[in-house]
Amino acid sequence: MDATRKAIVAVALADYQALQNKYVLHLHDLEEEFQEEYTRRRRAVVTAVLQSRPQVILKSGTEWEVLLDMDDHTFARHFRIRRSRFEQLLRLLQERGLNSKHSHGLPTLPVPKKALMFLWYMANQNSYREISDKFNISQSAAHTAILQVLTIMSGIGPHFVSWPRGCDKWMSSAAFQRTSGLDRVIGAIDGCHIRIQRPPIRGGDYINRKSYYSVLLQGIVNDEGCFIDIFVGPPGRVHDARMLRGSTFYANWQEKMEDYRLLGDSSYIGQAFPFIITPKRDNGALTDADHQQNFYISRGRVIVEQAFGRMKCKWRRLRDLQNTRMDIVVMIIMAACFLHNFALETVDGCDEHPTGCPRHEDGNE
């Protein structure tokens, strides 16, 4: 082959190789376009299927009406109040505006169902997810219904907690005289820590001397362990004596106490509260009469610690409040105090500590 032919063949081979390379690049571009189109169409199909298929929420709980068919003992064990008391509470809530209407286009919830959810919420530490599963509703519906009942409960406190008058004071005084040997005593006062999460605002104020975050409850109880006055909301680091001075009770204590007295612990010693009988500090120089007096005071005032303990055992929501909204925290604590008085006659043994309340870890001091 002469040189001219060799040159022609070489040029032809080069052109062929260039065309082949262009063809390969074209195939690669077609493959990428196909893959992108396939991916786009696949996403569109999946989105259309998901949007066209109705959402199904599986609930394992039974129909709520079954809960109303429980026998009295079982009902009280689960909801912490007797059936007769539940009917009274239901009527009271309805009178105060609780109805079956529901917002945001959701199905209506019967009033008994709302009341049962509220009691279950207060008596347990279940999350809204668990409550919604048990009562076969959405989490948002459970939250809305429970908050509605809490709001109503916080506005009807005098129906549950009220200061004694005349004859009631005399009867309480006689009862304390029998148990403690002290005269003119109508109640015992103390503070109680309710565990919470650290609030987002001034959270450091809520850490108490036991190094956890809490809100304080001041309670005054009569001889039966029934709250006759409560004050809720001070941060956990506040001293009991300071909380008393800032309470609504202290503003008109003379009118309420008259010539009667309360029993208190060492937190109120030397704080110029003439209506509180406190024990004497044991500095090693106490007489036998002083020791006897301290014993009588301790035996009489233990009833307020027992009241806090029973309340936390029965209404277990108080053991650890996971709300950071302080207004809801206060409403829950107030509701627990109201329910404590309302269900005081429901006396059942505590499954967790049958030897008696309170538990040490509840932090009732």
Results as ranks from 00 to 15, higher is better:
residue 70 M to S: 08
residue 328 I to M: 12
residue 104 H to V: 04
residue 328 I to L: 05
residue 191 G to T: 11
residue 64 W to F: 07
residue 219 G to F: 08
residue 262 L to P: 04
residue 165 R to F: 01
residue 272 A to E: 03
residue 33 E to K: 00
residue 224 E to S: 15
residue 167 C to G: 05
residue 365 E to S: 14
residue 149 V to Q: 03
residue 44 A to N: 09
residue 104 H to E: 13
residue 267 S to M: 05
residue 313 C to M: 15
residue 159 H to W: 09
residue 330 V to L: 11
residue 91 R to K: 15
residue 273 F to L: 00
residue 148 Q to F: 04
residue 285 A to W: 11
residue 186 I to E: 00
residue 34 F to G: 08
residue 314 K to I: 14
residue 185 V to Q: 04
residue 245 R to S: 07
residue 77 R to M: 12
residue 252 N to V: 09
residue 277 I to P: 03
residue 204 G to D: 15
residue 13 L to R: 15
residue 9 V to C: 13
residue 319 R to H: 03
residue 40 R to G: 07
residue 350 C to G: 07
residue 98 L to K: 00
residue 109 L to R: 02
residue 52 S to I: 07
residue 8 I to W: 13
residue 24 V to E: 15
residue 222 N to I: 03
residue 98 L to H: 00
residue 42 R to K: 15
residue 257 M to V: 00
residue 64 W to C: 10
residue 125 Q to T: 09
residue 214 S to G: 08
residue 270 G to I: 01
residue 46 V to C: 06
residue 221 V to T: 10
residue 141 A to N: 00
residue 363 G to Q: 04
residue 124 N to T: 15
residue 330 V to T: 14
residue 266 S to N: 09
residue 133 D to E: 11
residue 209 R to H: 04
residue 54 P to M: 07
residue 237 R to M: 13
residue 137 I to D: 02
residue 196 I to F: 02
residue 263 L to I: 04
residue 36 E to C: 12
residue 161 V to L: 05
residue 306 Q to S: 12
residue 269 I to L: 04
residue 214 S to V: 14
residue 337 C to T: 03
residue 76 A to T: 15
residue 260 Y to E: 03
residue 152 I to A: 06
residue 333 I to E: 04
residue 325 R to D: 15
residue 34 F to P: 07
residue 36 E to Q: 12
residue 273 F to R: 02
residue 186 I to P: 02
residue 43 R to S: 06
residue 236 G to R: 01
residue 244 L to M: 10
residue 168 D to G: 04
residue 300 G to M: 05
residue 54 P to E: 11
residue 34 F to M: 06
residue 302 V to E: 06
residue 152 I to Y: 05
residue 193 H to V: 14
residue 11 V to C: 13
residue 103 S to D: 08
residue 291 H to D: 02
residue 205 D to R: 09
residue 112 P to S: 07
residue 100 S to L: 09
residue 359 R to T: 10
residue 80 R to Q: 10
residue 43 R to V: 10
residue 276 I to N: 01
residue 7 A to R: 15
residue 34 F to N: 05
residue 361 E to Q: 05
residue 170 W to Y: 10
residue 337 C to Y: 10
residue 12 A to P: 03
residue 337 C to G: 00
residue 250 Y to S: 01
residue 296 Y to E: 04
residue 129 R to K: 05
residue 79 F to W: 04
residue 16 Y to D: 07
residue 122 M to G: 05
residue 174 A to D: 14
residue 74 T to N: 09
residue 77 R to S: 14
residue 81 I to S: 03
residue 151 T to P: 01
residue 245 R to I: 09
residue 22 K to T: 00
residue 216 L to T: 12
residue 158 P to A: 02
residue 262 L to A: 06
residue 18 A to T: 12
residue 300 G to T: 14
residue 217 L to A: 13
residue 330 V to P: 02
residue 285 A to S: 13
residue 276 I to S: 01
residue 41 R to V: 09
residue 155 G to Y: 11
residue 146 I to R: 05
residue 160 F to M: 06
residue 359 R to D: 12
residue 80 R to I: 04
residue 160 F to A: 02
residue 133 D to V: 05
residue 231 F to A: 06
residue 144 T to M: 10
residue 331 M to G: 08
